[in-house]
């Protein structure tokens, strides 16, 4: 399996144990040993090192505040791991609010039996991702649950960021004629996970595209201000679900053009084989921007200057017709409604 290795300058700490046990969650000596060697030696923010019950932070102006829990299985997947995902996920939620990510909490719920080696690699990924995004972990919690009561490790991160002065993100500003831009290729993350799930595994070199998106969103807001009307990262449920939410909330129609979707050929082929519609597959490294028509082309050009935005494209527009519905125009002239899914997308028999 292709796995990106996260490693720190300092080597993995010598501990008396190679697995996390229930004792590590007891609050006693073992807990302290795990926290000293595993947490406090990696995350160096002053507020965290004080080891108080909570962090005291100072912020300027309006603040974005978000939380997310990460329960992905498997915890290591092609291109990344749950740790990097937990940081990027929250950083991106802040970015979609038009904020500069600043501080984060980190809660770990560890199932006893997790290898220290694995925990270390996850923590290394968290540290590196925090550095990339400029966020500091200032508070946190570690719990250990009995075998069978978790799935190796669950992570919750809560993030706080400062809203950019020029940000005017608001669904209610969306109007007919606005353009819908996708910042990169869709369905990559979801398919990368499926390649390693039990029962579905198949060989490919599709890697998760999890990455922080704040640099691009901050740049867009600074450059284009009020022309950026909405930013959303289409994680669970994919692009189709986010667009449906917008259409329903705004009581407007959304029209997409089939041929314009940025999609990696290998991911597309995997979707064809598995019988999945890429519009519903989860993403981690892209966002949807609803923007003013007159700025759309310049916004796409600007996004394409970023390596994470090189496949950015206009995929559709907001229309007066069919309010509350997302329609895809096929290249053949016909159209179809892309609705909300009832539950998970289930692969087809044949």
């Amino acid at each position: 399996m292709m796995k990106r290795k996260f490693s720190l300058q300092c080597p993995m700490p010598e501990t008396d144990f190679d697995l996390v046990t229930l004792g590590h969650g007891s609050g006693g000596r073992l807990t302290n040993q795990l926290l000293d060697k595993g947490i406090f030696s990696i995350f160096k923010a002053d507020e965290l090192q004080k080891r108080d019950d909570g962090a005291v932070i100072t912020l300027n102006g309006p603040v974005a505040f978000t939380t997310d829990s990460f329960v992905i299985s498997p915890i290591f997947f092609p291109g990344s791991n749950i740790g990097e995902l937990a940081v990027n996920g929250t950083v991106n939620d802040l970015a979609m609010c038009g904020a500069v990510p600043r501080y984060m909490s980190l809660s770990l719920i560890i199932e006893e039996g997790l290898k220290i080696e694995d925990l270390w690699e996850i923590l290394a990924a968290i540290k590196i991702s925090c550095e990339q995004s400029g966020v500091e972990i200032v508070t946190g919690d570690t719990k250990v649950v009995e075998k069978g009561k978790g799935d190796q490790i669950f992570i919750n991160t809560t993030g706080i960021g400062e809203i950019l002065p020029g940000a005017r993100l608001d669904t209610s500003r969306i109007k007919e004629g606005d353009t819908i831009i996708l910042s990169g290729q869709m369905a990559t993350h979801g398919i990368s996970i499926m390649t390693v799930r039990e029962g579905l595994s198949f060989e490919s070199d599709i890697l998760s595209d999890t990455r922080p998106l704040h640099e691009m969103t901050i740049d867009l807001i600074r450059q284009f201000g009020h022309d950026i009307k909405l930013l959303r990262d289409p994680t669970r449920g994919g692009v189709a679900t986010v667009l449906n939410e917008i259409a329903v909330k705004q009581k407007s129609g959304i029209e997409l053009i089939d041929d314009t979707f940025p999609l990696d050929p290998q991911v597309n082929a995997a979707c064809e084989i598995l019988g999945l519609d890429p519009l519903y597959v989860a993403n981690e490294g892209i966002f949807i921007a609803v923007v003013s028509l007159n700025a759309a082309d310049r916004i796409v050009d600007r996004l394409r200057k970023f390596s994470a935005g090189k496949n950015a494209a206009v995929i559709g527009s907001v229309s007066q017709d069919h309010p509350g519905k997302v329609i895809v125009r096929s290249g053949y002239g016909g159209k179809r409604v892309v609705g909300m899914l009832a539950g998970d997308q289930l692969p087809r028999i044949c």
């Binding site: 409604v337 609705g339 009832a342 539950g343």
Partner: peptide, 28 residues
């Protein structure tokens, strides 16, 4: 509906009812 199907053709992604529902044929 697919959330609460009365019969199988509404469930399967290949079923005629689900296909009509999903692709919104009669409403599009």
């Amino acid at each position: 509906t697919p959330e609460n199907p009365m019969g199988a053709p509404m469930v399967s992604s290949e079923g005629a009812c689900a296909a009509y529902y999903h692709y919104g044929y009669e409403s599009a």
